[in-house]
Amino acid sequence: MPVDLLPGTLNMMILQVLSRRKANGYEIAKRIEELSAEELQVDHGSLYPALRRLEASGWVTADWAVSAGNRKARYYALTPAGRKQVGIERSRWDAAVLAVSRVMRPA
């Protein structure tokens, strides 16, 4: 059953996806869904405001390039600051997951 994104996790996952390779918006959404084994349902529309904010924070940059289907698409890539941010977000997330799962451990 597909689950909704936990609030605040979209940015983190975009950064994670981009840490492998650069991607356009469609690819990012698809990658998140694939990587979650289609468990997570990304609201494709909410991707773009999030990308703009990451851009503004200086974590990603964007440039036009030609897509696999030979069409012009805007590709996003991590900046060095963004790469660092992925690490930070990941460890923060791990800690949060650990803490929450401790709480949620069956009695």
Binding site: N24, G25, Y26, A29, H44, R71, K72, A73, R74
Partner: peptide, 8 residues
């Protein structure tokens, strides 16, 4: 954004 959305 409109181009990007069109592509998407």
């Amino acid at each position: 954004i409109d181009d990007e959305l069109a592509f998407h």
